[in-house]
Design a protein around this nucleic acid. Structure first.
Lengths: 401, 401
DNA sequence: ACTCCTTTGTTTGACACTAAAATTACTGGC
DNA sequence: GCCAGTAATTTTAGTGTCAAACAAAGGAGT
């Protein structure tokens, strides 16, 4: 193993990568940093000297050695940089400010109507307040949207559920906010968070599958988020699973999402008389928890469909791990009995042991993900984030200023 | 667009990348090379000076200019380097020697029995003859196998159909042959060939799907071949498509391959009395070509299954293009009527126009692919090929010697 | 023929990164 | 307390790449 994240950084990426590493790891020695990033200790000495002088990094205690010069640990100066994250949903915008080490500073929500023709400008206004409060220390703004984005770099959004076609979220925000702005699909932002603070620290290829209103999937392949040719990779909600199933929002019939998305589950439950015509999903979940086997069946069957569909994706992508998250996870205990056997049944003997990690859901997770777009920029050695990612790195570690 | 293939090369990768580029392009000027590789013209001048002195590259004619200093084109010296490619099948080994520009020099076949306990050594002996014939100019050996490989770098092969479990093809060949040896799944080698000489010149993410004895898939994502956590990405032949279908070689029932692999097609044809108990696929194809609608139905239904399965993969991976190839492609005209509508039906409006490229099949294609593993090494800036890839680059462009 | 323009290719000085040697700061055995 | 051993860090000298200035080689207009 040469480097922990992607290829070894160069040029302006070196100081950024060091700061990024220190943000996501415990305080490390210079030699450790060098090993992790594939740099020579000499370079780390030089660059950290500069970062210390600039007040971004500080020396911590020396650790006792086991026969050798003790390492002087380096850590980030608290509050040296802040990322702003925002997610857009059908009725509001959630905002977080996050420190370099991933800890959440503030969390707020604002009413928002994406259908308005002036939506980008309204979003910009919501963000502007926060941006001004943060001031100098702002590294960048990450925005997650439930749709596909042409590229993080530019940020034109297509989100059918909002009626958005090539809506210039990125350009408008950039013009208004005077800060680097990275826009991405919301599930991809969760993957970015995993990449930096979660499972990505130990694995290089994995899937992040979300269960909630829709069914989403983001993928980190060989340490990089994969977005596809048109930014719409991971649209697994519309995989066909039945030839005559329910009608989906996309117009087709029998999509996975139409079966096991929140609306699909509810429809099934109503058809079977488990909840009233005006009943909600919470009712179904309560029934399942109370031991109602018919209610449990709804979830079990959903788990089975999900497991079968994922097994195809796992065979195709051969990930190390699958991470499950999303608002729907609170009912996972009832999905699991259907899910596990369906998933494992078709996996070749080699992958039958595929670990599936179920993450508890937190309300600020979407927005935290969005902020992670910014915090992942230091590791974007391949340059997928383009100019915006570059600007984040510049704010983080440029030698001038 | 910054660079044509992956990220910009560094160090020993620079001369190799230049040679690689000249091998896959028409002769180019220094400035063109610099643009393609993301290097400065200054660097290209320096490195090519060296390559010219070493007799690997030569100056060609000047090209008339359109209002500027005319460009002096650079091209490869013919025969400056040769790659050896080999594919292993159930009964033989096919060998090609390929020039740097991709042209095939020789093609031979040798009987081979992979079930023998001494298979790696026997393979080594077959290759040794050719290696000695080539001598000095050999850049490396590429080997394609119908199974999964732990990494190109090491080359332990798992191939259930051969009864191979962690068979040390790479290590044994390396010990015997004294040349860089790259081992990979056979479908991945086809993807490597596309990457270097085919569709990869114009696209960065695509699928290569093979139809033949089995159903295979290789994927190039963001310009790199993706191999998965255990080297078995692309095992789409075992995606479940029916709950009570025919038994597959993998032990499960209802796998895609069991339905539409060569054996599956034949089984269906026999069940329907279209060919005799001892009849072969050629009989079915002849019947279909002669207008037998029952025979055509077998192919059409197979096309439908393939299209449905691929639509799921396309939704997941959002590739720019899908390339179809393999021995089974000679019957494609009869697959297509089922395939096209099934594939497009479920693609979101944005991807309905997904181009599907059907490549005619050539007998030496597997072996050419294997050789491409070597010829793709110069572009492996990420270092996936590890030490072996590095050794190929060293032979191609090292400054010493 | 002369001048200006355009593009290619080369030279030069600066700079980032490195390998290797030197230095520092400990531990552990005596 | 002294010495050998060990590992982190720093220094030093050197290499590869680049930006910018420069040289070369033509076209097009006058």
């Amino acid at each position: 193993m040469v480097s922990t994240r992607g290829s070894t950084p160069r040029g302006d990426g070196v100081p950024a990568a060091i700061v990024g590493l220190l943000g996501t790891r415990k305080p490390s020695s210079r030699v450790d940093i060098a090993r992790s990033l594939g740099l020579s200790p000499a370079t780390v000495t030089q660059v950290t000297r500069d970062l210390i002088a600039r007040g971004v990094v500080e020396e911590r205690v020396s650790v006792p050695s086991r026969g050798g010069r003790p390492a002087k640990l380096l850590g980030l100066v608290a509050g040296a940089g802040v990322a702003l994250g925002a997610t857009v949903t059908a009725d509001r915008v959630a905002l977080v400010t996050v420190e370099l080490d991933g800890s959440v500073r503030t969390w707020t929500q604002h009413p928002f109507s994406p259908n308005s023709p002036d939506a980008p400008r309204e979003l910009a206004e919501i963000l502007a307040g926060e941006v001004n409060t943060i001031g100098e220390r702002l590294l960048g703004v990450g925005v997650g949207v439930p749709g596909s984005v042409d590229s993080q770099e530019s940020g034109f959004v297509r989100a059918p559920s909002f009626g958005w076609h090539a809506v210039p979220i990125g350009p408008v925000l950039r013009k208004t906010l005077d800060a680097p702005v990275l826009v991405d699909n919301d599930v991809n932002t969760l993957a970015a968070a995993e990449q930096v603070y979660g499972i990505g620290r130990d694995h290089s290829s994995y899937l992040v599958v979300t269960i909630g209103k829709g069914i989403g999937c983001a993928m980190v392949l060989d340490k990089a988020i994969y977005r596809g040719a048109t930014g719409s990779a991971g649209e697994i909600g519309h995989i066909p699973v039945s030839s005559d199933g329910p009608v989906c929002g996309c117009g087709d019939t029998g999509c996975l999402e139409a079966h096991i998305g929140a609306a699909g589950l509810l429809r099934t439950a109503r058809e079977r008389g488990l909840v009233g015509a005006r009943g909600r999903l919470a009712t179904l979940l309560r029934a399942a928890r109370d031991g109602d086997t018919a209610a449990q069946d709804v979830y079990r069957e959903a788990g089975e469909l999900l497991g079968r569909s994922l097994s195809g994706i796992v065979l195709t992508l051969d990930p190390e791990v699958v991470v499950l998250m999303g608002e729907g996870m609170d009912a996972w205990e009832h999905w699991r009995p259907g899910f596990e056997p369906a998933l494992r049944r078709c996996l070749a003997p080699t992958r039958a042991e595929l670990p599936v990690v179920v993450e508890p859901w937190r309300d600020d997770q979407w927005a935290r993900g969005a902020a992670s777009l910014v915090l992942a920029a230091p590791f974007d050695t391949a340059g997928n984030g383009g100019e915006q990612s570059h600007r984040v790195r510049a704010r983080l570690g440029s030698r001038e200023t």
